[in-house]
Design a protein around this nucleic acid. Structure first.
Length: 130
DNA sequence: CCCTGATTCGC
DNA sequence: GCGAATCAGG
């Protein structure tokens, strides 16, 4: 039987998983596909665009996302369980805040900040260890 | 270098 | 129509 064909059942599954905010890679794994290329290709072909905001689709549409607050707010009050803890600005300044984007499960930061926060440390640690 | 979705383009 | 490769971003 042809494995890599989009049957109605598979398209339904694709739509369901995609609507549940699963990533292309996760959907590909569940469908037994090698990577997300087939998934994303089909998504685009079906006219399903999760979000039209270019490629920044890391946070699945949350209510509050204070990317740039008008005025300095008490940062701790904005932090939720899902909030990225990445500090933005001068910690002693008035405009200090946290990223507050949806953080990664098991990590204190969102995906982007987790990466930039940890990568230099790992490199330094390896260099120092030698 | 890891990841994300979006798009292109040969098949 | 399909998806590998590529693009653009974090």
């Amino acid at each position: 039987m042809a494995m890599s064909t989009w049957t109605d059942e598979r398209i339904e599954e694709l739509k369901r998983l995609w609507s549940e905010s699963l990533t292309g890679s996760e959907i590909a794994k569940r469908l037994g596909l090698k990577d997300r290329n087939a998934v994303m290709g089909k998504i685009h072909r079906l006219g399903l665009a999760r979000k039209n905001f270019a490629t920044e689709v890391q946070a699945p549409a949350n209510d509050s996302k204070p990317a740039e607050p008008e005025e300095p707010l008490h940062p701790i009050l904005l932090l939720k369980e899902w909030s990225c803890r990445f500090p933005v600005g001068d910690p002693l300044g008035r405009e200090f805040r946290f990223c507050c984007a949806k953080r990664q499960p098991g990590l204190p930061y969102c995906e982007a900040h987790a990466r930039i926060a940890y990568t230099p440390m790992e490199r330094s640690a390896r260099a120092a260890r030698r």
